[in-house]
Simulated assay, not measured.
Amino acid sequence: MKIACVQLTTGEKVEDNLNLVIPRIREAAQNGARIIVCPEATSQAFSAGRLDTQAEDLEGTFATRLQELAQELEVLIVAGTFRPADQHEVDGKTLNRVFNTALITGLGHHEGYDKIHTYDAFDYRESDTVRPGEDYVVVDVDGLKVGVAICYDIRFPEQFKELARRGAELIVVPTSWADGDGKLNAWRTLSTARALDSVSYIAAAGQARPGGNAKAGEASGPTGIGHSVIVDPNGQRLAEAGYEDEIVYATIDQDAVQEARKKLPILDWTGA
């Protein structure tokens, strides 16, 4: 099965971002992709201000437009969005939190995975404005089991192993990774490691680096570093983007997953 990771730079408005991502999804589908993964924060970039003002449930404009597109193209689309969650007290202020959600739509699906591990690191507290999710998600696409994670989740191998134990052969990861000293090396290491310790394919679609190659390596917030990547169960990087807008493709071989798990049965290990 052919998959695609769509790498782009989204902005402030949901409608503008739909107009940006829809032609890229169409291009990926025309090139034969059956599963098309778009970045975290596709509906609204993290740099675009408050997330709660445009957050909407899966019956809202963003999700339904992509649902209609997925039905038209007969593909599965995974794309980052934000849904209303709850109110949360921070330093005496009441904030409207959202869920950081990966929309999963098409081929009989219309649901979301809510990011479990919020990015509370490096003096940033995503949990102030984003409520952590609780549930793992694995969906079936033409007999291929697909697990879903988001960005910072990739630092937690237990989640990827559990998705694999629940049947996932491919784990898709919408991402908006920060740039800066050591960040690209960390991203490459983590995306490869999660493929190895879950013995699964990893398809991680990231926000492109704002400013592209000219800004590469400079410190930034969680607004994108590019380098969307597809890794096989043996840790081989099948495709990797650069810093600019790009689409990368690879073919998923379920037999390769089963063969790798047979040779390296680490998912069966329960401890001494």
Rank of each mutant, 00 (worst) to 15 (best):
L58V: 09
L18N: 05
G112V: 07
I154H: 08
I154L: 11
R26H: 04
D114C: 02
E15A: 02
P23D: 01
D179F: 00
E158T: 13
E56D: 10
Y243Q: 03
G143Y: 14
V199I: 15
Y119L: 14
G167K: 09
A186V: 13
T270F: 03
D135Q: 14
D57H: 09
Q67M: 08
G133Y: 12
F62P: 04
T9Y: 01
L103K: 08
N185A: 15
I104E: 01
T223W: 07
T42P: 01
A256D: 04
T223H: 07
N185C: 05
D179L: 03
L170H: 10
T42L: 02
Y243R: 12
G32K: 13
T251R: 10
K93C: 11
G147P: 06
V37I: 15
A149M: 15
L8F: 10
C151R: 06
A121K: 10
N31W: 02
R34F: 02
G180Q: 03
T101W: 04
E56S: 12
Q258K: 14
K263Q: 08
Y152V: 11
A216G: 13
I3K: 08
D268C: 00
D86T: 14
L20H: 00
L238F: 05
V37G: 06
G11F: 05
A208M: 03
V90W: 14
V98Y: 03
A45G: 09
G106Q: 08
V21K: 00
I25F: 08
I36Y: 05
V199R: 15
Q71H: 11
K145W: 10
L238M: 13
L58N: 05
G32Y: 13
L144T: 15
A178C: 03
T175V: 07
D123A: 13
L196M: 13
G143H: 11
V78W: 03
D135V: 07
L196Q: 10
G180M: 02
P210W: 04
T9A: 07
T105D: 04
L51V: 08
A70E: 11
S198D: 08
R131T: 14
I22Q: 11
A193L: 14
K115T: 06
G92K: 11
L107Q: 09
